[in-house]
């Protein structure tokens, strides 16, 4: 079964002149895919990513994630769904500054889901080791580098064993070497945990490493995938 199925997906922003950001697109994404949405600024990639992340509901069509129609999810229900199934990686890392590296990774297990303390610790330690930060757990975000922050963000997104990770320009604020490390880390995580990674990016490094590429132009899918997904 596909992890994501979009049918005639539309997003129109109301206003004096309504803006059609997504114009009825169809695609599917299989589990454990490494997918990149590419396209020029204003093409609708971020809008699409927001809809996939249940942050912004579609105004038309149907969107199924992890077997659930998420088109109608709003507010608390959408938040709960995100908490169970989706992880996020942000361009600016978005770590919580008052929490240590360990606590940042622990946050979704404690404040979004409710895991017992021992299991939380075990899982966070596993993720810290997986992203090569085993000895950095006690540090605070201001004490680590940008690449390390993004490693922590990857660990935080994966710690709940989310089926889907959405990453918006995850390497935009990293140097080339660090960006390549992060990409390979995410691929390794995909291989280890079977998580689907979807990127919205301009970064050719990510685009070239993606196994499926959807090109969006003016709210429509323009070019077919390379592998692992399909669109009509």
């Amino acid at each position: 079964m596909s992890l994501i199925t979009a049918k005639h997906l539309e997003k129109t922003y109301p206003g004096d002149i309504p803006v059609k950001a997504i114009r009825g697109i169809d695609f599917t994404i299989e589990p454990a895919s490494f997918v990149s949405f590419v396209g020029p600024s204003g093409s609708g990639k971020s809008t699409l990513l927001n809809m996939l992340g249940c942050l912004d509901p579609p105004t038309g069509g149907h969107l199924t994630v992890s077997g659930q129609d998420v088109s109608a999810l709003r507010g608390r229900a959408a938040a709960e769904f995100r908490g169970r199934h989706i992880g996020f990686i942000f361009q600016d890392f978005n770590l919580i500054p008052v929490l240590s590296v360990f606590e940042n990774i622990e946050y979704p297990l404690q404040m979004v889901q409710t895991w017992p303390q021992d299991e939380r610790r075990q899982r966070v330690e596993t993720m810290l080791a997986a992203v090569g930060m085993a000895d950095q757990g006690h540090k605070y975000p201001h004490q680590i580098s940008g690449g390390q922050k993004q490693r922590v963000a990857v660990a935080r997104a994966l710690v709940t064993r989310a089926e889907l990770i959405l990453a918006d320009e995850p390497t935009a604020n990293l140097d080339r070497v660090t960006a390549l490390h992060i990409i390979s880390l995410m691929k390794a995580m995909r291989d280890e945990f079977g998580t689907t990674f979807i990127f919205s990016t301009h970064d050719p490094k990510i685009v070239s490493s993606a196994e499926t590429i959807f090109t969006i132009e003016d709210g429509r899918l323009a070019v077919g995938d390379i592998d692992g997904g399909s669109h009509a």
């Binding site: 992340g53 608390r76 938040a79 995100r82 908490g83 169970r84 989706i86 996020f88 946050y107 979004v112």
Partner: peptide
Amino acid sequence: GTIAAMGTVPT
């Protein structure tokens, strides 16, 4: 925005 995106409920 970050904690809300991660699934922290409004309450």
